[in-house]
Nucleic acid binder design. Structure first.
Lengths: 219, 219
DNA sequence: GTCTATACCGTGATAGAC
DNA sequence: GTCTATCACGGTATAGAC
């Protein structure tokens, strides 16, 4: 019982730190947030971060790590249900796009603030070279390669490099969609909102599916 | 003559600071770089930044500002030569895509390290809400709206919100393309390079043109 | 007008009391 | 497991010398 209680208490502090860090990192990025910002926001002493996570960078890694498995599983579960139909590449591509993008769009919009902030952090990471090796590649290569392989099989006569670019284009559209940068709010004078991913969904699928068919169409 | 000389000297220090800052901001972002990092790299005292730019944030703004006019002019000059042909939306869309994306891809690859770093910085800015008002909106709204308006005219029966999303998708593909994050190097096991924008160009145009036609096709 | 020296505060991390 | 005190360092900004 003691063990269980102490575990639960420690666990709740860890979770509180992860949640608070997630929020702040989403707002200002890794370098824009100090461990004092985090602990003050969470009403804790700043030593708690070093105790629970050893360092600020480690906390950041833990924030990223926490939600990789659920996201990856949601994507791969959809992908595993996909039937590659070479006679209907449009249907197959739609299946790939939906398996890759819809879980992230759905988590970002309906998964609560935690998931929303997580997606924003990933969108930031993704455009920065410095995180490519330690984080992005280490954590996302596996399931990215499965999507690339599925595209590969869907377009047997398309060159490898076009297949890879198609994945990049799908990725960039997805990540920009979840970064919630308020850009479209400004440009549309408030008619659209960058956090309204429900409204984005249909145009998004039309664009990415049409784009991939067009880019993969010629070998 | 004194005035001219002193102006030239001051100007060269300013330029050195701008160039050095541009390089470092591209590597680690605004918060990841200190004014000491910049002045040490440039072999200057750290007070020179406050003297020439008043503050770190002001220096950052100056870095962004410096290259907006040339980029904007390159884009709008191409756009002004475009003829909107409602009977051939594919040709028109290709013209819009080329006017918006090719100048940036070209500057990033062939404009020297300064332009390359600038494009990387813009790609980082673009996904962060905090810079939307002071920088992105203030500096890029004008020419962004011209591209949106041209899309608007090209697809008279498409809803406004799809037009705005089409611009967002074009923007996200363009910015991700120039961020040089090495992701495609990793995923392709070195067969492709994120700094090889020449090779990216044709698939990029096929994807974005096909995507926009598909997303704007249905009102 | 330009650069030097320095002030002063915030940073990440740790040692040791509780 | 948590808190206090403190470290060495890096952060921006400024006052004043040249």
């Amino acid at each position: 019982m003691n063990v269980k209680n102490s575990y639960k208490k420690s666990d709740s502090v860890r979770t509180l730190l992860l949640d608070t860090a997630e929020t702040l990192f989403a707002e200002r990025g890794f370098f824009g947030v100090s461990i004092r910002d985090i602990t003050e926001e969470a009403d804790l002493r700043n030593a708690s971060i070093n105790y629970h996570f050893k360092s600020k960078e480690n906390l950041f890694l833990a924030v990223i790590d926490r939600r990789i498995a659920p996201l990856s599983e949601a994507r791969l579960s959809k992908l595993s249900k996909l039937e590659i139909d070479l006679l209907q590449p449009d249907r197959t591509v739609r299946g790939i796009v939906e398996a890759f993008a819809l879980p992230m769009l759905d988590f970002a919009e309906n998964g609560g603030t935690g998931w929303k902030n997580y997606c924003i952090i990933v969108a930031h990471l993704a455009v920065q070279k410095i995180w490519n090796d330690n984080i992005v590649s280490a954590k996302y290569d596996d399931h990215s390669r499965q999507f690339i392989e599925t595209l590969r099989q869907t377009f047997p006569s398309t060159s490898d490099h076009r297949i890879h670019y198609c994945f990049q284009f799908l990725l960039s559209a997805t990540l920009y969609a979840v970064c919630d940068n308020k850009r479209i709010d400004t440009l549309s004078n408030g008619a659209l909102r960058s956090d309204d991913l429900t409204r984005l969904r249909d145009p998004f699928i039309d664009f990415t599916v049409g784009g991939i068919l067009s880019a993969a169409g010629q070998p």
